[in-house]
């Protein structure tokens, strides 16, 4: 297609730069959610459809890559179709297609990347490769576009636990990360061990409501050391404790374990915010739905006089609106990605 025609899809802007009217279709298939979303101008969410496979993986106590890939392949077209119907968008309205190219499960990523590139080729619009972690940062900005830079994001999910400083669009610094298990992974493992089911986050959260968080003094790993995390020792401590005290209340154990994880997460995030002089602190990732974490996070921000922001639950968990949003900013920064782009299970943002 000649350049003039492509430019005309982005009215009033030079050479294909995205503008406030640019509509990006985002696709996310990095783990166990098949998602598609239509976002205009990087911030206006017209639709965000997420089909969770959590029930498919529940009996295995974790995400099974082959099961996830098969489900993505079945769900990708229905989810895409629904996201366009809900947004009232037709093919020719789409100005760019963005997809998560990593990090994540390779077979799962490939379904979304392949579909996204095929759509971009067919509609003759740019394809944009998006890093999943970068997109999580944009989830906070989608819900609260007025957040100021430097912005610190505590990103906690089944796959990641990190503190990231965002100084501007495309400008990130890794402050700290987990040295072993992700926080969500620790929740899953402890929940499975306690017989509370899968996914572990909501299960522990619910059990903890009826337990005493001060009942058992579980260790607070690396509480005062640097900004990195380690949760595998805490998980072992829970296992050992239960072996030695088999009759203890499961609710007390869940509540005490959760209190230990949350205390470490919040303490490091607020310390990092002070050290970096961040103007705002936001939560991201699936574990951000944890009720104790939300409460303590906001309390800490209020105490320290820093702007604290909790995105909605839908924005914390994996979704494609954050992919479309990050895709819009990436398009304005780096431009389109080539159609020869593949998926990278270990894609890095730093």
């Amino acid at each position: 297609m000649p350049a003039e025609t492509r430019d005309s899809m982005v009215p009033g802007l030079p050479s294909g730069d995205p503008g406030p009217d640019t509509l990006v279709l985002g696709i996310e298939t990095s783990c166990d959610e098949t998602a598609a979303a239509c976002v205009r101008g990087g911030t206006e969410v017209l639709s965000s459809v997420v089909s969770s496979q959590v029930d498919l993986h529940a009996r295995y106590g974790g995400v099974v890559p082959e099961v996830a890939s098969r489900a993505h392949n079945e769900l990708i077209i229905p989810v895409l179709a629904q996201s366009m119907v809900e947004a009232g968008v037709e093919g020719p309205d789409v100005d760019a297609v963005a997809a998560t190219t990593g990090p994540g499960l390779i077979g799962a990523l490939l379904v979304g990347v392949s579909a996204a590139k095929a759509l971009a080729l067919t509609w003759d619009v740019p394809f944009v490769s998006v890093n999943h972690l970068e997109a999580h940062l944009y989830a906070a900005l989608l819900d609260e576009p007025d957040l100021e830079f430097p912005l610190l994001v505590l990103l906690v999910s089944g796959g990641h636990t990190m503190i990231v400083e965002m100084d501007g669009h495309g400008d990130y610094r890794l402050i700290g990360q987990t040295l072993d298990d992700a926080a969500g992974e620790a929740f899953d493992k402890v929940a499975r061990f306690l017989g509370l089911g899968y996914p572990g986050g909501p299960a522990i959260d619910a059990a903890a409501l009826n337990g005493d968080p001060a009942a058992i003094p579980f260790p607070r790993p690396m509480l005062n050391e640097g900004f990195d995390f380690s949760f595998s020792g805490l998980k072992t401590a829970v296992v050992n404790y239960v072996r030695e005290n088999p009759d203890d209340s499961t609710e007390d154990i869940a509540a005490s374990f959760q209190a230990a994880v949350v205390e470490v997460l919040v303490a490091k995030a607020r310390r990092a915010a002070k050290a970096s002089g961040a103007k705002a602190l936001a939560l991201g990732g699936g574990v951000a739905a944890n009720s104790l974490l939300r409460e303590q996070f906001l309390g800490a921000c209020a105490d320290d006089g820093i702007q604290g922001f909790l995105p909605s639950r839908a924005m914390c968990t994996d979704n494609a609106a954050m992919i479309a949003s990050a895709g819009w900013y990436r398009l304005s920064g780096d431009g389109p990605s080539p159609l020869s782009t593949g998926a990278n299970a270990r894609d890095r943002m730093f």
Partner: peptide, 20 residues
């Protein structure tokens, strides 16, 4: 091969979907 098949299927389905 499963992964290869899914790349082809996802690509083909998306093109058919986009072209109706």
């Amino acid at each position: 091969l499963f992964t290869g098949l899914r790349v082809g299927l996802a690509t083909a389905k998306a093109i058919a979907f986009a072209l109706r």
